[in-house]
Design a protein around this nucleic acid. Sequence first.
DNA 1: TATAGTTGTGTAAACGCTTACACGGTAAAC
DNA 2: GTTTACCGTGTAAGCGTTTACACAACTATA
Lengths: 349, 349
Amino acid sequence: MAVKHRVSRRSRSRSVGISDVAAAAGVSTASVSRFMHDPMRVSPKLRDRVEAAIKELNYIPHRAGRALASRQSLIVGAIVPTLENAIFSRQVMTFQQNLRDAGYTLLLATSEYDPELEFRQARVMLEHGVDALMLVGQKRGSEFYEMLERASIPFITTWIYSKNSIHPCCGFSHETAMKRVVDYVVELGHRNIGVVTGFANVNDRVAARLKGIRKALKEHGLELMRDKIAYSEYTFDAGGEALARLLEKGERPTAIVCGNDILAAGVLTEARKRNIKVPEELSVMGFGDLDIAAQLDPPLSTVRTPKAEIGEAAATYLLNSLEGRKTESRIEVDIKFCWRDSFGRASKK
Amino acid sequence: MAVKHRVSRRSRSRSVGISDVAAAAGVSTASVSRFMHDPMRVSPKLRDRVEAAIKELNYIPHRAGRALASRQSLIVGAIVPTLENAIFSRQVMTFQQNLRDAGYTLLLATSEYDPELEFRQARVMLEHGVDALMLVGQKRGSEFYEMLERASIPFITTWIYSKNSIHPCCGFSHETAMKRVVDYVVELGHRNIGVVTGFANVNDRVAARLKGIRKALKEHGLELMRDKIAYSEYTFDAGGEALARLLEKGERPTAIVCGNDILAAGVLTEARKRNIKVPEELSVMGFGDLDIAAQLDPPLSTVRTPKAEIGEAAATYLLNSLEGRKTESRIEVDIKFCWRDSFGRASKK
DNA sequence: TATAGTTGTGTAAACGCTTACACGGTAAAC
DNA sequence: GTTTACCGTGTAAGCGTTTACACAACTATA
């Protein structure tokens, strides 16, 4: 059934290579190569000739050749779930900037929260010979880590931190973060607390946050009932709908703790639509501190996560590893609780 | 005892190559290569042996070798100004997804709106042998385009459209878009219009939008005075400050037209801070329709730009070019005007 | 039966670079 | 005036693929 048709061959014209430069300059390719890496390693006379030849021929070195010969691609890979979320795009951006400053280039893929796709992308990256790899989260099959192991390249998992982590990681404990949030929420008098969260099965961070919530509640003798959790996609509208579902069941919560700011913004909008006053009647808490959080009305209480810092720290770790420098492989970053107007004391009945 | 280990050098151990597989399977490397590209091209017997050998050895093909021999890297590059803005990250994401589905991988760099940096990054991409390249905007020195010309790879400029464009492009006319906006703004009775915009010198899209504004005003016998324009960085706060500057000078405008939604959001926040009622006393118009636009209070009027569509169209164009298919090289995408509550008729004095 | 295709496989020469090694020349040490 | 060291350069063997070409073994055709 598959109709095989011949794809027109691309032009195969040789491009200007190092040997052309060598010939034009009347030197050996070795000398040109040396010049490329450190002009001071060749004599001034030769230097000038090579320089002239390069300019003359518009020579652009071909890194595939270099990669083959030197076993270094100068490429670093990153696989993130999505770029729709400012969280990851900010992280990727600083990651890339730091790599670039060190002479590396970024190969980027998204996994769309699909483990299988993530695995395939990782494999492709290894085929491309990436010198290092940045990942998000740690939950993946052992064959994934075994593959990395065999490739023996440094890698780091981000948005995860645990001092006993088996793998290099850079982030914070989502569990602790959320526990602290809920501790405070309870302190503010809230007893009936609703949760709007992403789907925990695909994402270890979501699961950890839920765990933190449960832990805090338990310590205060409370329990997170099933009908107080609404799972949702990461969109504004879905966040609003999640609130709607929560409100349909039982007594209205006095506080909603959300898995991220997108969901919280949706909740805020839905609350306004229903004339529920925030925070008087309903307190709302986000997570992540996107730029928009402070622009919402009322400004959203949330947890600030250092997206850029994570990208930078990940780059630093990988670069250190590549250079053979000793570095801490479990990096904890600071988070900050931002209590803004969307969250207040529980209304007294 | 005497363990002689040179730590500084990176491990140079040969990895499993195609020749190892060939040896293990008792066939030639050519056959393995053929198997890799199309298993049906080799006999069943040989197929099984090769398959077994590959699994046995955990063989991962090395694309640098392939790139060298076949003159195709299966890598496509993209250079965008930043990923902080959802505009570009969304575009990059769909671009990447479409490439991936076609077997290509994305090499990504940011230029931070710096032409020089963009040029250097482009050069690095060519060194990596990208098969194609996506860029944002068209304003760059001729040496840039000459370099691309010499590399003779397909490329496309995005967020730009003109039916006479010299270069392949995919986007819309910012000039026309803004002209239509202002036409309507004037129709709504506004005569005193302020503009908050990014810096036009670094960005051809900004310049085009300003041109559109001026053109529209001129047709209505109006003029954009210098003191009605505030230039600003692309941050919420800077947008607010820009409004502040505008308000200090002369009579207060009845409408503010912004270069993007971030600036508009900043303007909205600043207006609220000053107790200026939107839209009764001041109408505000954004550009771009970020997700947040509809969540703001009041919901922001803006121009919806198809970010994902641009990424996809760019990918499609490049893939078509790579496969030698004939395609339109100037692609216009639709924009949509979203009139929400932040914009209304000019208040009658 | 002779001839011409077809199919499956192997051989070996690239592809563009790096780098171990060799070598001649000059400078420093004796 | 040797010897020793070092420096700058060239030679050539890879690095892991692809692919043009050759060839043997079939199959189809006349």
